[in-house]
Structures are given as structure tokens and as C-alpha cells.
């Protein structure tokens, strides 16, 4: 097991380094010098010499590969650079904005999981019309733009029904609609994978054997199908992290919440590449960690995976 772990860890680090490189190439290695963009604007009235000094101060005059190594070194030591727009370290910006986004994402993911499980169970156990409904909902959920859904929820629940206050809401109240908005599109692929796998497992010969033992449909669902359908769903959940984060950014924008979303928006608008680089690398790191965790969790659900790499060694 430990050799497998080391191998997967190495792979994860490699992907992370590659993600850093891709982000660096896209954001920093090509022209479109952030320092120039910021200070060449006439309103500050800086001279060419002053700009040159600033570029040296920001390290923008060095050859690209030196910048790359420099930035990489900084990242490894926990220094994510300085936000050119805000003039503060990116790390402190992150510390300020990350917790809110994480809370939103976690709540939304929990809601999405509940929604997905509810749809999946309904798709197998309900009346015919309920099953059809549960099966058609995910495609519908996928098709709805997150930002539009958020706006529509505000329209219905706040403006029309007045159920959720948008003016001076309680902290928990403030999160209801954003969580719902974000949960809907995340729940769709989860439910789809869950339903598809359940259908597939229901067709397996061992289910016929369980039925032949006298098991009822519900017994088969809980004792056999659920556990076999779980591992692929877990994998899917890991893959959805990227969607979750992207969705959170959009949702925060729609609801005007503070968090990574606003930070990203500002960074893109101002070409504040250091901020964006940090966000990209950080989310890639989170993604890699999550898929690693999923990988290590899977053998708990499927004993066939447990002794896969160990062999007889």
C-alpha cells in the first residue's frame, strides 16, 4: 500500500507543478506586463525611469525562466506575491476571502449530495411518474445557468414571496439562496452517476441471486445496489470540485457576497495576475488533494481495490 501511496503522491505533486506552470505560462510569461498596465495609465504621471524602477522592484525585468523559478520558489515558501491592484500580499487577501467561499462551497456540496441521493432513491423506488420525474431532473439541472438560477431565486423568494430578505439579512439567511443556487447544478451530475450506476448494478447477476433469495426490491437497493453504486459516485464527487469552485465564484458575484468570487472578478478586471495565479494554483492543489483522498477512500468501499497494488510483496 505504501508504495502505491508514494506513487500517487508523486503523481499528484507532478500535476500540481504542471498546473503552476500552465498558470504561469498563461498569466505571466507572455507580454501584457501587469506593471506597465497599472502604471502606464496617465493619471499617476510616473516617468519612464520610475516605471523601470518599479519593474525591477516587481522582478518584471528578469528573463522569463528566472521569473518562473523565482515565483515557484516564493510559492513553495508560502509567498504568493503581491496584489498589484490592492498593494497587499495575495496571501492576506486569500486569508480574508477564502473562509466565506469554503463555507458556501461546503454547504452547497452537502445540499447537492442530499438532493442527488433523494433523486436517485426516488428514481428506483417511487411510483412510475415519480421515477420518470427523478430521471429527467438532472438533465434539467445541468442545463440551468448558475447565475440565472440565482437571479430567478431572488426574484421568486425575495421579491415575489418575500420569504428571504435581501436587505440586511441574517448571516444564515444570506446563505440560503446562494447555497441552493450552487447546489442545483452540482447535484445534477452526482444524481446522474448515481442513477446510472444503480441501474447498472440492478442488471448484475448477483442482484438476480439476491432476488432469488427472496429479497424485496427495497432490500436489494439498500443491501446490494447502494454500496456498489457508491464508489463511482465518490469519484465523480471529487471531479466536481472544480465545478463547485467555479460555481461559487459566479454565485458570489450574483449575490454580492464577499469571497473568492469578488477577488477573482477584480483580478481579471485589473489583470492582477499574481492574484489569479495564486487562486489557480490553490484550487488545483485542492483538486489534487481531493482526488487523492477519494483514491485512498475507495478501497474501503470496494475490497477488490484493497489489495490491488500490494500483490504478494
Amino acid at each position: 500500500m505504501s508504495r502505491h501511496l508514494a506513487q500517487r503522491l508523486g503523481q499528484a505533486l507532478l500535476v500540481l507543478l504542471a498546473a503552476f506552470t500552465v498558470a504561469f505560462v498563461l498569466l505571466q510569461a507572455l507580454p501584457g506586463d501587469a506593471v506597465l498596465i497599472k502604471f502606464l495609465g496617465s493619471e499617476m504621471g510616473l516617468t519612464a525611469e520610475q516605471i523601470a524602477e518599479l519593474r525591477i522592484a516587481y522582478g518584471a525585468d528578469a528573463p522569463v525562466w528566472q521569473q518562473y523559478l523565482h515565483t515557484l520558489g516564493n510559492f513553495l515558501s508560502g509567498d504568493f506575491g503581491t496584489s498589484i491592484r490592492a498593494g497587499v500580499p495575495v496571501a492576506s487577501l486569500l486569508a480574508e476571502n477564502l473562509p466565506a467561499t469554503l463555507l458556501l462551497a461546503a454547504l452547497a456540496f452537502g445540499t447537492a449530495s442530499l438532493l442527488a441521493v433523494a433523486l436517485a432513491v426516488l428514481s428506483q423506488l417511487g411510483f412510475a411518474w415519480a421515477r420518470a420525474f427523478a430521471r429527467s431532473m438532472p438533465s434539467f439541472f445541468v442545463a440551468v445557468p448558475v447565475f440565472w438560477l440565482g437571479i430567478m431565486l431572488i426574484q421568486v423568494f425575495s421579491f415575489q414571496l418575500g420569504l428571504v430578505s435581501v436587505i440586511a439579512p441574517e448571516p444564515w439567511e444570506e446563505l440560503i439562496l446562494p447555497v441552493l443556487t450552487l447546489a442545483v447544478p452540482i447535484s445534477a451530475p452526482l444524481a446522474q452517476v448515481l442513477i446510472r450506476n444503480m441501474d447498472q448494478v440492478f442488471g448484475e447477476p448477483f442482484v438476480a441471486v439476491a432476488r432469488a433469495k427472496g429479497a424485496t426490491h427495497a432490500w436489494v437497493l439498500w443491501r446490494h445496489v447502494a454500496r456498489n453504486a457508491l464508489p463511482p459516485t465518490l469519484t465523480m464527487a471529487g471531479v466536481l470540485f472544480g465545478e463547485l469552485l467555479g460555481g461559487a465564484v459566479v454565485t458570489e458575484t450574483v449575490f454580492g457576497l464577499a469571497g473568492l468570487g469578488g477577488m477573482t472578478q477584480q483580478a481579471v478586471a485589473n489583470q492582477d495576475v499574481a492574484v489569479l495565479q495564486a487562486i489557480v494554483v490553490l484550487s488545483a492543489a485542492a483538486f489534487v488533494t481531493i482526488s487523492l483522498a477519494v483514491d485512498l477512500l475507495l478501497p474501503l468501499f470496494d475490497p477488490r481495490l484493497a489489495n490491488r497494488p500490494a500483490g504478494a510483496a
Binding site: F206, A208, A212, G214, T216, R227, N228, F301, P303, R304
Partner: peptide, 28 residues
Amino acid sequence: PERKLAALRGARISLIPQDPTTSLNPVR
């Protein structure tokens, strides 16, 4: 109906399936 049949299966009539490799639940 299914419920009455289920009580019969396993107790009065049982099955030995075709393919033993896929006829046991892999995770139990």
C-alpha cells in the same frame, strides 16, 4: 404479486445461477 413471490423465493424455490464470477456481490 411480488411480495408473495418474494416470500417463496429462497425458501421453497431457489436458484443456482449461470455465471459464478458475476453472481456474488463483489463488495460483501
